[in-house]
């Protein structure tokens, strides 16, 4: 379970998060939508401790992320994150990209790590690309590799930060299909996304962020059907 309690975060004078409260249960898929600069992506990087927070706290399975005593490297093993920019490691083959963390962080043997990696890569449809370098992959393939890389650590939670935003339109579908597959498999996910159809079809709940505040949260039918909040309605009418 991820519990976010009254989280505040600023970059210099700019207040990015102004008191966010959100609880995500095991197995739940929560999509976060909202305009750019609304703090959606920042929230994700706070959840896995890549960014410090100014106020409030975030608990992952009861462990406080930003507590001094927390071993972040250990905590991050169970929180996978995939970024808008795929961040493939260019000097490693697809297979090595995926086996790196299981081997060097978890201390897994090469054979075992490769078995897991191949399974994950086949799962995302890259079973025939394991020997090539990322520079030979399309954006969509690189992004699916990044997803396989995060999954190879067998995380309990997956955070997706606008994973389709840097892709050509015709490549968006293949990545979203991968995400759907994952959601159907029962993965706990928080997806920051601009794909409204995806948010509507896959999420258990949809949260709308507006200027650092979670303006509204509810099941997709509510958000997309009868949003209570004026800002939500305005945003949705602008993206449709």
């Amino acid at each position: 379970m991820i519990e976010i309690e009254n989280v505040h975060k600023s970059f210099g004078a700019l207040k990015v998060l102004k008191g966010i409260d959100l609880t995500v249960d095991k197995g739940e898929v929560v999509s976060v939508i909202g305009g750019s600069g609304s703090g959606k992506s920042t929230l994700l990087t706070c959840i896995n401790g890549l960014e410090p927070i100014d106020e409030g706290r975030i608990l992952v399975d009861g462990t406080e992320v930003h507590a001094r005593s927390t071993d972040l490297n250990k905590l991050r093993r169970k929180i996978g994150i995939v970024f808008q920019q795929f961040n493939a490691f260019p000097h490693l083959t697809v297979l090595e990209n995926v086996t790196l963390a299981p081997r060097k962080v978890k201390g897994m043997g090469r054979k075992e790590a490769e078995e897991i990696a191949v399974r994950q890569l086949e799962h995302v449809g890259l079973g025939d690309k394991i020997k090539v370098y990322p520079s030979r992959l399309s954006g969509g393939q690189q992004q699916r590799m990044a997803i396989a890389r995060a999954l190879a650590m067998s995380p309990d939670y997956m955070l997706f930060d606008e994973v389709t935003s840097a892709l050509d339109p015709q490549l968006v579908g293949e990545v979203l299909d991968t995400l759907k597959l994952l959601a159907d498999g029962g993965m706990t996910m928080i997806c920051v996304t601009h794909e409204m159809r995806f948010a509507r079809e896959v999420s258990d709940r949809v949260a709308f962020f507006d200027q650092g505040v979670m303006a509204e949260i509810g099941p997709p039918e509510q958000i997309f059907g009868e949003a209570k909040n004026e800002a939500t309605r305005k945003f949705l009418s602008s993206v449709r």
């Binding site: 490297n73 991050r76 996978g80 963390a101 060097k104 962080v105 990044a146 890389r149 650590m153």
Partner: peptide, 30 residues
């Protein structure tokens, strides 16, 4: 080398030294 490479390494559970050694350094040497 973009900062995001380091970030990606850290987010996989690597400490700063390990991420530097395994991800940044090989690219730097090339």
């Amino acid at each position: 080398i973009p900062d995001t490479q380091m970030r990606a390494g850290r987010s996989l559970g690597m400490g700063p030294a390990k991420a530097f050694r395994l991800i940044v350094m090989p690219q730097m040497f090339r």
